[in-house]
Design a protein around this nucleic acid. Structure first.
Lengths: 395, 395
DNA sequence: GATCTGACCGCAAGCGCTCTCAGTCAGATC
DNA sequence: GATCTGACTGAGAGCGCTTGCGGTCAGATC
């Protein structure tokens, strides 16, 4: 004898008799059971309740819910009416377990504490909710060992696809994801990631454009404040800085490159170090706008005028960059676009698991504002065009 | 004859024979099946696989996973070894469906596009991942009708508890949540929400303190730029502004209160309107730092010096507030603390559904910086203490 | 030695849904 | 009128897990 569907069980040990009563009677809005202390607990209607009210089987309800084509119009309407009258809402976990869509995509990142993250998540959010999906946000807080666990848990019955903002290096689990054909997209990953779908910004050309801009203004001693070394973009930006110097025949001086962490306090400190050099730089290029704000603060404290005594360039183009005085010259990174593109790509993968691998590089743009000017002592006109290096690049 | 556990079914129609082969054999790392095109697909081990390897029943594995006490130590170790060797990861949806914990909390907000949100989510993230939970982020993008749907879906088998950043008013679904005893906490909800757990900041005392500060500096015509009118905090801040004026016997002038939206562009516009008044204000209090940046920009453009010609106060104390020049006097709102407190409260509710309702109000602090000074023409010393109004308040 | 006790563990129902397979039945075809 | 077709629907197994209930068995008790 095959399995029979039995009476549902309540979570908190209600007597079966009460259950029967609650379950019976078509047309009731929801199963209701009184708890011991007189409160009322409402059990959400299931697909079976809807089926009963509509006078069809649960399979038919499921088909209606999922937009299956072969359903008679009258039946569909009856079911929909029943769903509305009962206030039916699909149980996501059950659906996911039974092999349907969970409608959730995961976003894995180190943390939520930067303008970079905020921009990306805005784009992701927009695109995800536009597609009627939900977003699961997971932060690893730099605990590398948590990443693999997260990925395993998420990819195992929790989300349909994964967006991953990775630090440098390609951990094992990425290979695992690839092997298991789980749909995922890497964001801002500059390393070589064979077979992976990646979305990132043209960091290197952007940084080169910024450096070019300073060079064209006559700057020869240009300080550079890096980001955290575990991020791929940090190295790409440093690469762009170097590219431009090399192209201009300006030697790369070690003392002018200072390690930073994308944040303001370190930008401030780094600038104090740079300004303490015997032959201080006349321009400073920071790897983030936040760090550039630190540069501005340190300059102010040192009594230097920007841009007359010191030119400053940032990276990101956060909204505040144009609010400060002088407004910050910076490299615009299309953060929201990156988020959006990543989601779009993920949706494509969801629709077609065999879609060919893509590597999307979004253009960066040099935004010239008031914080950069001719180098002190530099004479005449700028010695070349500026701001022309931006655009999609090889990363 | 009772139900027998049958062979597992693969999602994509693999032949049963392959399944049998894949399922059998204790000690294999995972069930593996080749797809048509030669790729390999790895099925994650289930609790049954672990049970088989450990030589126990699936119930025992479940008990070990969930830290059930009555398990012999040797058994526990055997099971744990099996889990490790198989790389077992619990299936969250299945667990949630079966009545266990999903380990996910939901955060419902209008959008992710403000410093307010970023601060709150940082706190939430920190506390959530500290507790070993996951975060599900849902944004309604101001589509009110989506909220109820979200809440229904989330509270129905998806998350264990809900954090809700609500605009003004108390929608029906909140009452529904309360009725169904689903654990949830409202964040930054200033309206009366009977029976709801709420975490918010002392907006009103904070705004009063900021206004007091300007009054003490001799300002009498103080402009006020509001936030979006659908937020409770907007009205609380306006209330605090009014409180302080009334207490100082300064008349509230309609033309000095301009509607804003918490964002920079509108802050800029609003300031231009204020500065165009015949008798322009000598101080402007904006309902957010972003809006205050707009005030600074408009002042700069109008050739006004800050604070000599115009004093400016913001609200929030975002990091940038102290980076700009002059640094912004503002009301610090403990955004991260709000996020953290909300999660803490939710965890308490999760642990004890009958915990008494709490309304947590976190203190705001006036941060006096360079953007405020004595009113032009005001003589002598400040006419009263400043900055003394901050602290926990009634909201 | 019989009974009791309690720690430990297994059985199997059930969570709410999806999806395959097997009908059913009205209309078309021969 | 018998057969076929295809649109539509129902039955029910199964997803991976939790958990109540009951069984087992070694040691304690009488």
């Amino acid at each position: 004898m095959p399995c029979k569907r039995l009476q549902p069980r309540f979570r908190s040990g209600y007597p079966p008799a009460m259950m029967d009563r609650a379950r019976s009677g078509a047309g009731d809005r929801a199963r209701v059971a009184a708890t011991g202390d007189g409160r009322i607990r409402v059990a959400r209607p299931t697909i079976f309740d809807v089926a009963r009210v509509a006078g069809v089987s649960s399979s038919t309800v499921s088909r209606v819910v999922n937009g299956h084509p072969q359903i008679r119009d009258t039946t569909r309407q009856r079911v929909q009416a029943a769903m509305v009258s009962l206030g039916y809402v699909a149980h996501v976990s059950a659906r996911a377990l039974a092999g349907g869509r969970s409608g959730v995509v995961g976003l894995l990142a180190q943390g939520v504490d930067s303008a970079f993250f905020l921009g990306v998540i805005q784009g992701v959010d927009q695109q995800v909710s536009g597609a009627g999906l939900d977003l699961m946000l997971c932060t690893t807080h730099d605990r590398r060992e948590k990443e693999a666990e997260y990925v395993a848990r998420l990819s195992h019955g929790m989300v349909e696809g994964l967006l991953i903002i990775l630090p440098r290096g390609l951990p094992d689990y990425v290979e695992q994801l690839r092997a298991s054909q789980f749909p995922f997209v890497l964001i801002d990953h500059d390393d070589d990631a064979p077979g992976c779908n990646v979305v990132n910004a043209a960091d290197r050309p952007g940084a080169a454009a910024a450096t070019d801009h300073l060079l064209a203004l006559g700057h020869r001693r240009i300080g550079f404040i890096t980001g955290t070394l575990n991020m791929g973009s940090t190295h790409q930006r440093l690469g762009g800085y170097r590219d431009a110097l090399v192209a201009a025949g300006v030697p790369l001086v070690g003392e002018l490159v200072v390690q930073g962490d994308f944040l303001e306090p370190r930008g401030y400190e780094a600038t104090r170090e740079l300004l303490a050099l015997t032959d201080r730089p006349t321009g400073i290029f920071a790897s983030s706008d936040a760090a550039a704000f630190g540069v501005l603060r340190a300059a102010r404290e040192a009594g230097l005028r920007v841009p007359e005594d010191l030119s400053v360039v940032g990276f990101d183009d956060v909204p505040e960059a144009s609010y400060v005085d002088p407004a910050l010259t910076t490299v615009r990174q299309p953060l929201r676009d990156m988020g959006r593109s990543a989601v779009r790509r993920l949706l494509e993968l969801l629709a077609d698991p065999d879609a060919p691998v893509e590597r999307i590089v979004l253009a960066t743009t040099l935004m010239v504002r008031g914080s950069t000017g001719r180098a002190p002592g530099a004479d005449g006109e700028p010695d070349g065009p500026t701001g022309g290096r931006d655009g999609p690049g090889s990363g």
